[in-house]
């Protein structure tokens, strides 16, 4: 309620997580009495709308349908070729990424099939790369080097079966991997 200043993404994320979690657990402690889902939903929608409204008026731009509105900012739609590559939309993430990614991997593997005995290796490296940003957060290259190695060792068994030991380091390492098991599986599939 009072978290108006919380970045919209975080807020949205937190709000959307409430329901599936309740639905999944059979035993819930009712600390604050019964939850009025209807009300909660309404309030959340209202909050999201407030955030969108604020963003919209700040930029006088309707982000939902990509349309400029009158205001301080004079908007113009320019061809992507008229601006540096960097500004081009990365807009295709939502379009069947799984199949598309698999295709991509195939292309990539084929590309280096001649030279590399294990073309499959291409992908895991990319995956290591993806995560290395946070891995590298821990200082010197030396320590990153060691870290990475131990991490990739842990990662391979995790993708096939869950071991009890996975939970402890996983939880310690990042909230992402421990709290959203749902996310891990598709991600794994995507990257490979």
């Amino acid at each position: 309620m009072a978290h108006v200043e919380v970045p919209s993404l975080l807020e949205r994320h937190a709000a959307r997580r409430t329901f599936p979690m309740l639905a999944r657990t059979k035993v819930c402690r009712s600390l604050f009495g019964p939850v009025d889902h209807e009300e909660l939903n309404r309030e959340m929608k209202q909050k999201l709308q407030e955030i969108s409204e604020r963003e919209r008026s700040r930029w006088n731009f309707n982000f939902e349908n990509n349309s400029p509105l009158p205001g301080n900012y004079e908007w113009e739609e320019v061809g992507a070729r008229c601006v540096p590559d960097f500004y081009r939309d990365s807009g295709r993430c939502g379009v069947k990424p799984r199949t598309a990614l698999i295709n991509h991997v195939k292309v990539e593997s084929a590309e280096c099939a001649g030279e590399n005995a294990e073309p499959e290796v291409v992908r895991p490296a990319a995956e290591v790369n993806q995560e290395n940003r946070s891995g590298a957060l821990n200082g010197t290259p030396t320590c990153a080097r060691k870290k990475r190695r131990s991490r990739s060792v842990q990662e391979s068994p995790r993708s096939s079966s869950t071991q009890i030991t996975d939970f402890f380091p996983k939880r310690k390492r990042s909230a992402e991997s421990s709290s959203i098991p749902v996310e891990i599986t598709p991600r794994k599939r995507i990257r490979w």
Binding site: F61, N72, E77, V78, G79, Y87, G91
Partner: peptide, 23 residues
């Protein structure tokens, strides 16, 4: 190719551009 939205802040003269990512 697509297009990019670009705007000028009429008060500061500063230019901004939008980049969207669908997640």
């Amino acid at each position: 190719y697509g297009t990019v939205y670009k705007a000028r802040d009429t008060q500061s003269g500063q230019f901004v551009a939008l980049k969207s990512v669908r997640v």
